[in-house]
Simulated assay, not measured.
Amino acid sequence: MSVENADAPLPEAAGTVFGDRVDMASEYVSLLREHGVERGLIGPREVDRLWDRHVLNSAVISEQIPGGAQVVDVGSGAGLPGVPLAIARPDLDIVLLEPMARRVDWLTEVAERLDLHLTIVRGRAEEREIRRQLTAADVVTARAVAPLARLADWCMPLVRPGGLLIALKGASASEELERDRAEVSRAGGVDSEVRQCGSGLLETASTVVVIRRARPAAGQDRRSKGRPRSQLRG
């Protein structure tokens, strides 16, 4: 039985974003509401704004992700944005990468409870073994993980040439991109720009920085798209 708070109505945008899987999204919100604070996943002030500030905010970045993409969600934490993306876009092949064991346990429980086809991996993007295991993703996502300069340095090696790093940021995204543009470029990022997701759907659109990984020069080897899996759930 769902533990959704009866006093918290389903946002109108939820049906548009999640379609016939909106009940699954509602169950995820219920799990966060029931367990998120006690398990250190969200702050107490976030309980009453889970839909707009976290779940819908995460799901709408799917506008930037091509069909059937291989996605790695770095520092997934409570499952944001990876779990909402998996609910809204079952066509995506998503890995949730998280270094903390207790959060890996949470993500595993969520995947099993919602019957989501997710791969859950414990580790950090900058670790050599993780870079060997999770190479050549079409898209890498990150939310509230690190400043862009550090994020690009950690995450760009996981992105295939021509693929995308999509970082959820706040109102100062443009300033952060200008400040860190040189470091992003040194990490292999090109065509960096700030975009809005969910405009006209959400009261406050999600702001993302989208960075493409440079393609290798002619004659350089390209990496294989294959990657091993571990802890497959769903």
Rank of each mutant, 00 (worst) to 15 (best):
L85N: 13
D138E: 09
E34P: 03
S30A: 15
S172I: 01
D91W: 12
V22K: 08
S2C: 09
D115G: 08
D221G: 08
Q64S: 05
Q196F: 05
R181F: 00
L50K: 00
L232E: 14
W154T: 09
G36A: 07
S206M: 01
P84G: 11
D153K: 11
V60A: 02
I130T: 13
A137S: 14
A13R: 03
L114H: 03
P147D: 14
L134Q: 06
G200W: 01
A125M: 06
R49G: 15
P161M: 07
H117T: 14
E129H: 08
V3E: 04
D180F: 06
G15P: 09
F18A: 12
P9H: 07
V209D: 02
E34Q: 15
M24Q: 15
E178S: 06
S224T: 14
D191N: 12
G188E: 00
G79F: 13
A152W: 01
V208M: 00
R124S: 12
P228Y: 05
L202G: 15
A13V: 06
R233V: 09
G77H: 04
G19F: 11
S2D: 13
S172P: 02
A14W: 05
L116S: 10
V184C: 08
R186W: 00
R124D: 10
L41P: 04
G226I: 03
D191G: 03
V140S: 06
V210D: 01
R233C: 12
T204D: 07
L96A: 13
P11V: 10
V29F: 02
V74C: 12
A111Q: 06
R195V: 04
A14T: 09
H35G: 01
P99I: 08
I87A: 15
T108I: 06
V83G: 03
A13S: 12
G40M: 09
W51H: 07
Q64E: 11
A88M: 10
R215L: 13
L151A: 02
A142G: 10
V95W: 03
I120A: 12
A69V: 08
V139W: 01
T108S: 15
